[in-house]
Every structure is written in structure tokens, then in C-alpha cells.
Design a protein around this nucleic acid. Sequence first.
DNA 1: TGTCGGATAAAT
DNA 2: TTTATCCGACAA
Length: 212
Amino acid sequence: MKEETIFNAKPLPQIFFEQPTLELAKTLLGKLIVKETDDGITAGYIVETEAYIGPMDKAAHSYNNRRTPRTEVMFKESGMAYTYLMHTHCLVNVVSGGQGNPEAVLIRALEPVAGVEFMFQRRKADSPIQLTNGPGKLTKAMGITMKDYGHPLTEPSLFIAEGCQPKRISSGKRIGIDSSGEAKDYPWRFWITGNQFVSRHQKALKIFELPE
DNA sequence: TGTCGGATAAAT
DNA sequence: TTTATCCGACAA
């Protein structure tokens, strides 16, 4: 698996991104995210996501269809990268919801698969677990920056590929949005049940068993 | 636990 | 011009 998997990894087609945001947030789990830079390739399985459904979600930057230079890409077609800065950190989302409907899925944690040596070069960490177990950590480890804003994830040098199918998915409240009114309790955080690379442990509100 | 960093956008 | 944010490093 590893290098050969990556070498052969092909971007998923556009149609993959054209599913409802909550479905996409779940089906992204276990998929491979791949980034190519001058250093080489890094890749990891997505193990944690959060859905943001702009028009009715107070926690989303695009709440109430708020349209600014920052959120502009969320109004475009599904499958683009929405990167933004949170203090000093870059975070990456997958745009969803279709053109004119500003929704997105935040990538919150990865299980490193390839290019771990490059990740350690970019980030100080004691173990591979610490390398990509948070939304700001994984972008730094993979070299994802604001230059990736608006990049279609169906094409190199930043794309999503087939990975592995999780057996169980947990859902719970999203992280870090405590001042977003009723939206703070929406169960729109998803993670692979039991995975070591998830950013923060939390009691699951619901567990989904997936077919083989 | 708490502080601070320093882009973007809302609130004042 | 001030405050808040989908976070993380470090101090204590």
C-alpha cells in the first residue's frame, strides 16, 4: 500500500463532489488527500471532517449567503479547495453544495500515508500522531497554503483520490464554534471511529456502520 | 490553564 | 479602530 498506492492514485471525478454536503462529509472519510510540491508527494487518509452548510449555519463563513472575497469560492462549483487563514494557520475545506450554494467540508485530521519525512521537515512533532491531527497541522505538514485557494480537487497538484473504506463512522458536535448560537450543537463533525489520528476525543452522538 | 500570533471581516 | 474567529505552540 503506501508508495505504490500514491503513485497510482488518480483524482476522483467531479461527480464525487456533487452529493449533499452531509453525505460528502461522511464519504470523504477514508479517502486519500494528495499534495505534490517541489519537495515531493505527501498524502494521508482523511479521518475527520466537519460540514458547514452556509445558508442556514451560523458557524459557517457563508452564513446567510454572506459573500466576501474570502467566501467567494464557496459559491462556485463543488470540488474546489476553500483555504482560509485562522490567525497564523491555513485551513482547508472542500467546496460543496453546487454553484451558488455556499457549503463546504472542513478537513480536520489525516492519517499520514506518504511523504512522512517531508511532513516532519515542515512541522515539529514528537510522533506521526502529532503531525496531522488538527486542521492547521495537516495543512502545514502537507504544504497546503493560500496558493491552493480555488484549486479544483479533481486535478494535481492537490487532489482527492480513492482510499480505504472505514468500518464505522462517529458523529458529534463541531469543534471551536461555541459562540455560534444554536448551530454549535449540530452533529456535523464526523470521524473514523477509533482512529488514532483524530484531533480531539469526544463522545459520539451517533455511530454509522458501513457496508463493505 | 492562559497568552499570543496577525489575516479577514464584522461591530463599534 | 476595536473585536472575534472552523487553531496551535508554548509557558506555567
